[in-house]
Design a protein around this nucleic acid. Structure first.
Ligand SMILES: [Mn+2]
Ligand SMILES: [Mn+2]
Ligand SMILES: [Mn+2]
Ligand SMILES: [Mn+2]
Lengths: 221, 221
DNA sequence: TAATATTTTTAAGTTTGCTTAAAAATATTT
DNA sequence: AAATATTTTTAAGCAAACTTAAAAATATTA
């Protein structure tokens, strides 16, 4: 059970992220773009990950994680999201500030540390961005959520997550008071550009672009 | 202000540790032994650290930290010790369990993180082993402490630190209830091997070897 | 001082993880 | 199907951070 380098861990996470939505193998260019590296570097690493049996790799056919590789990726995601909860809930960082620190903290090696951190935080099920935190076995709690853009006029929902994680978007949401847990109702859909007039919990009205409503996840109410 | 690799940071810490007691430059073999590496690797790295102006290096004459290098080393020690406090005080690890995790956590890069962690922990001045935590400017709060072995018969002191940090020693101290804050009195010194009969706060008596008393730091009372 | 021992540096080579450039495989158009 | 475009892999090379072995510098001892 030789432990992996941070670099190797980042490759597994990238492959997991690409594969988790679509059910097909991750292709080299997608990984290269995710990790901001050249395709050549990816090909190179895939061979090494394959020889360690962390990925199923056949040249020109894309790559998938083995069960072992997948387990490692899920543990990394668990650690990342637990640390984000720690940073927001305990150290009072805002949700747009925590990702880079969590990228580093997730590589700290100690399963006991993560067990205790989880317990200290009260075994949270979701991170500050509404993303589910897998349990110690890698099981995600799935939630029925849809993009706000999928609601019809007069339908309501509660904000439970975001599809886009950039600081710019998160800060925009803060400014508009569109954080997690806020109840929104679609008052009007402007067909021209699919922008929305919505009302927030406190009766305030707001117009948001389609790009915003597509990246804001709500639970229908 | 190119940021340093974890490896480079570890070299600076090692040099600092070697130089902090004695006032002479650190020699190659001492660093090699501290980092468990060959002398050749050290020579190699010293050239690179020197070109980055983190150390004063002249071949065959040993090495010292520049002001910049020293500042980085002190920040690392600050981070290491604050994380150790976090692990013990918040996550309830014991003092013999935290060092390895802190070795990793100290390399997480974010001055805001360490500022907030320090504030959350109540700006502690000492870590779980009694070692002083430098402030944000790198200033250590010094304490007048001596080895228990330096006490005369009938003199008393309070345990405030350890000179040896191995798990084995720390666990031994736990077993003997010789943790930080415990009041000890030297009842008898056995000249033959310099072992001591001491009494603890609760009136209990105990015999300890010279090796133990030399590594146990007390504040004379 | 000369011989010997120790310490430090240099030289050469390895592994990891990247790069650019070229070649090869696969996919898309015409 | 042939031509063209895209994707992926291979080849060659580089930098960081190590190793072992040999050489050089310094220190100790006779
Ligand atoms: Mn994140
Ligand atoms: Mn997140
Ligand atoms: Mn420590
Ligand atoms: Mn400590």
């Amino acid at each position: 059970m030789e432990s992996l380098s941070q670099t190797e861990e980042n490759y597994l996470k990238a492959i997991f992220k690409i594969c988790e939505n679509e059910d097909k193998p991750a292709n080299t260019n997608a990984i290269a773009s995710e990790l901001q590296m050249t395709a050549a570097a990816i090909s190179d690493m895939l061979k090494r990950l394959s020889s360690k049996e962390l990925v199923h790799y056949k040249r020109h056919y894309g790559v998938t994680l083995t069960e072992h590789g997948s387990q490692i990726a899920k543990t990394l995601i668990r650690k990342h999201r637990l640390w984000e909860v720690f940073l927001c809930d305990v150290l009072n960082f805002t949700w747009d500030e925590v990702h880079e620190m969590a990228e580093q903290l997730e590589h700290v090696q100690s399963s006991e540390l993560i067990f205790r951190l989880d317990r200290f935080l009260g075994r949270p099920k979701f991170d500050p961005h509404g993303d589910p935190i897998p349990d110690a076995d890698g099981n995600f709690e799935m939630r029925k959520q849809i993009a706000l853009s999928a609601l019809q006029e007069n339908e309501s929902g509660v904000v439970v997550g975001v599809d886009e994680h950039s600081s710019a978007f998160l800060q925009y949401l803060d400014q508009m008071h569109l954080g997690l847990g806020v109840k929104v109702k679609v008052l009007e859909i402007y067909k021209f550009d699919n922008s929305l007039k919505i009302s927030l919990g406190a009766g305030k009205e707001l117009t948001i672009s389609n790009k915003v409503s597509e990246n804001l996840l709500v639970q229908k109410k």
